[in-house]
Nucleic acid binder design. Sequence first.
DNA 1: AACCGCTTGTGAACGCAGGAACAAAGTCGC
DNA 2: GCGACTTTGTTCCTGCGTTCACAAGCGGTT
Lengths: 229, 229
Amino acid sequence: MNPSRPRIPEATVARLAVYLRVLGGLADSGRASVSSGELAGAAGVNPAGLRKDLSHLGPCGVRGVGYDVAGLRDRIARVLGVERSRACVLVGLGNLGSALADYAGFGSRGFEFVGLFDSSPQRIGQVIGGRPVLALTELDDVVTGTAATIGVIATPAEVAQEICDRLTAAGVRSILNFAPVTLTAPAGVDVRQVDLSVELQVLAFLDTSRDAGRDTGSDARVPAVGGMA
Amino acid sequence: MNPSRPRIPEATVARLAVYLRVLGGLADSGRASVSSGELAGAAGVNPAGLRKDLSHLGPCGVRGVGYDVAGLRDRIARVLGVERSRACVLVGLGNLGSALADYAGFGSRGFEFVGLFDSSPQRIGQVIGGRPVLALTELDDVVTGTAATIGVIATPAEVAQEICDRLTAAGVRSILNFAPVTLTAPAGVDVRQVDLSVELQVLAFLDTSRDAGRDTGSDARVPAVGGMA
DNA sequence: AACCGCTTGTGAACGCAGGAACAAAGTCGC
DNA sequence: GCGACTTTGTTCCTGCGTTCACAAGCGGTT
């Protein structure tokens, strides 16, 4: 209940980001206030769970009325640390990296790519998402110069660990890795892994077990797709 | 412990997919057997947890020796339902969709895109990842004709729900959604959400709480940048 | 053939997340 | 001004996931 210090469960943080997106949409459509039930419905979660998540921020609603859309949005943004723009670097501009660099969803949510890096001479100098692709040799200078603390790895798996080492050596402390390898990073560095094929394989398993499972399928397990992934 | 039927926790399924990837690498490098400790290290998990995960498949190791790499790999692949190729359709071939269509990691893990769809006339007819982009009007015929059960949505958020409806109406029962919206699907359809900006926001939160949390950072004298934003 | 070391598989405890029910609080209507 | 309704914030409880620790089993060695 302490508003800022006591650590918030990671699952809650992931949902807060979802609430933030929904609130942004509501604010754009002119809504002034919203109830927990409606917000939970739009986010795909349980209303009680949503209120519990918000309780980690301290009281921020008005009983009998609901939540102020803009106020709650700003409060969540502040807690998540996205109320100010954060500098990120992106390494690897193949298909996936280019998609990430050009993804408007990042810029609109407080993330700015201050450096795009690739090892291929063919890609260096290209402009993707409004920024030029730089050579890997400039990585260290850019990271230290911009004080970027977030790095995104979209390279082939073979070089991902090396890039991770260089990023951490340059001062990056949070890494989002799309390469299908398990990275090892020094203590104090957070690494989040997004493996697209893992997501598909989980789907395949659910599909298979549904086909084969006419016995268990009685209850229709609806796992309340909690889109954290 | 029942080898195949009793439902395996979803968290375990996700890790099994990671083990499968690691085992594939070990098999390629000629390794014949591997211990739980080594495999856990390569996958970034606890050895005891790994053994518990594998226990859901029934006994599949040899005490005192370890696990047979190829045998365990095939067994996991069979449980996950990826030992045979699965037909998938992909809707939305912007930057992200094109990256997905061209991502070799899918094909090598038992997923084949049997149909790429987009609404833009400019993209229809283009060949991406070896397959032509089709018009959305053909979606229903392709899904029913190929018996595809998995659909991937990489469209703008505005049309994602409509695509979801069309996919489920055509018979798709598993959906991987990259659009930043919460989809509602009929019961019996699994939806997994991958929101890239949510991942970054979780990183931002960890970063912020680390900056503010002077208690945890006891051991690491992080010289790094002088912390002026 | 028996011992010993190594590794798996499992049982138990701990902590955490999720869900439902209840009390507090504020607003709207009369 | 007062009552009733609405909605939040909290508390309890149930279940799951994770971790630790130990017994069981197999191979190699003497």
